[in-house]
Design a protein around this nucleic acid. Structure first.
Lengths: 146, 146
DNA sequence: TAATTTAGGTTGCTTATGCAATTAAAGAAG
DNA sequence: CTTCTTTAATTGCATAAGCAACCTAAATTA
């Protein structure tokens, strides 16, 4: 309690979204500059599929820290855009396994490039030591309230 | 570039929203526990008005790092809930000055209490030194890309 | 094996966000 | 003054999120 009072207002507003909003907007902008017609939220889904296909919607929900309805709708849109397909799991018919289409796979290179650019822009001028410290703290905060 | 590659995936997903999403959800939950029927986004507007009334929508946009249409709609909803009122500025008739209603002022105590609880939950177990470091880094990141 | 509980997804409803285009007022330039 | 530009706010359109309720399939257990 006492500690928190000593912190500036800024800290709370950073924690509650200024930084992440700024990053999302920048990523969105960079995706557009790279001619990628996807939202930053769609990017987070594609990112995980670029690492590993055949994830269930529940797995994507856990990985992206979203709820199930959000994933349903993101997948709906990505499916409409012909970037992913749902394949019903024969082993567990409740699950959908999500796969990339050829279209979806083609976006990987540019998508990863633009996110790397975004991260570089965000972290410019910060040294590794600091970043590790920040990550450690965000990690603790996340575990406190997730 | 090299620095960022050394960081774990987690860092990027923290930066892009896991932490702030978790905090918003927790704040939302705590507001509900405190019988406050407002969203966490509405809270951020009220928070600034609790500090100072008569802000313009543009000022609220800057303070909360949102665009003007977002503010227009947040104020619409808060006005419908009879928590704030728009007063047309006589000096500059383009602007609306936003004031709290009695209702809106009454929420201050519980609203501030629940946000303090949320912050304490989030920052539990972290020492002041660490928090200052984290704030410093988030500040730099924000200025890099805002 | 029937009954109950749990888990994966979807749908409905409400709120919020981003971007582009628009209106109206204020300020600046001629 | 009158035109041009900037600024504050609004509207339209599309996407996304949270929560609760629901459906169906799987797992548990009685």
């Amino acid at each position: 309690m006492n500690d928190s009072l000593i912190l500036s207002d800024e800290f709370y507003s950073f924690l509650t979204g200024k930084v992440s909003t700024a990053i999302s907007r920048r990523l969105q902008r960079n995706l557009k500059l790279g001619k990628l017609n996807i939202t930053s939220e769609q990017w987070t889904i594609l990112y995980h599929l670029w690492q590993e296909e055949g994830l269930t919607q529940q797995e994507l929900a856990n990985l992206t820290f979203r709820d199930k309805p959000s994933i349903t709708r993101l997948i709906n849109n990505l499916e409409k855009m012909s970037l992913v397909i749902r394949v019903n799991d024969k082993q567990d018919r409740r699950s959908n396994l999500i796969y990339l289409t050829k279209e979806g796979r083609k976006l990987k290179e540019e998508g990863m490039k633009q996110s790397a650019i975004t991260l570089n822009e965000a972290l410019e001028g910060l040294d590794l030591e600091e970043l590790r410290a920040a990550q450690h703290i965000l990690d603790k905060v996340f575990h406190n309230i997730k």
